[in-house]
Amino acid sequence: MILFVQTLGWIFRPPLQGREILKQMEEVGVRSFPVVVITAGFTGMVLALQSFTGFKRFGAETMVGTIVALSMTRELGPVLTGLMVSGRMGSAMAAELGTMRVTEQIDALYTLATNPIKYLIVPRFLATLIMLPILVIFADVIGILGGYLVSVQILGTNPTLYFRRTWDFLELIDLYSGLLKAVFFGMILATISCYQGFSTQGGAEGVGRATTKAVVLSSLTILIFNYFITAFLF
């Protein structure tokens, strides 16, 4: 929490470490992209299958497109992306900062008159904050395409009807609320993971502990906050 406040404080003190931010954006974006694509694609597909089975019982098969789009944008896009990026990048950040701590690289930054919060944490924080919503947009699109694929190719739904159902009932607020969640999740996972790495103690074993803790805590916090953000926006 203190780290979060200090990080916010340093964000507004120029000069920003542009080079580091770009590097981290690339790390977060590029490295997480495949995981996010696979997760979102298959989730969209399974959503289509499941909701089709359900809706068929009261003859509303054409609503599958709506349900996939709403679930992806409002809920599954941001939550699954948040969890996947926690696993992919949260662990990487904790491991990297933890290694830097136990090998005295963080001390070395201080001795070179550079504040490690500004140099290491702010770039990771900003990069995650920026990249997570972008990944969520990809997740939404790919999830919807996955649902489309299953509905049209396997379940034989009319393609134009599927898209009409998707667009007609999708509102901008659905997209926004998902992206707002993504921003929060980004802050949560970057702060927790960086904190765990930064405060690592006890050699290689400590780095392992910090990494595990970063993923578990970020994931749980994301799930808990997800409920409250949803309840607040409801």
Partner: peptide, 27 residues
């Protein structure tokens, strides 16, 4: 101050010259 750490504490994501030039680049 300048400090030499026991195991070097070099930044492992940077090349040797970037390590040496770190202070100059920052300040």
């Amino acid at each position: 101050f300048g400090m030499l750490f026991q195991a070097g504490a070099l930044f492992d994501s940077m090349k040797v010259w970037e390590n040496v030039g770190f202070g100059l680049r920052q300040q």
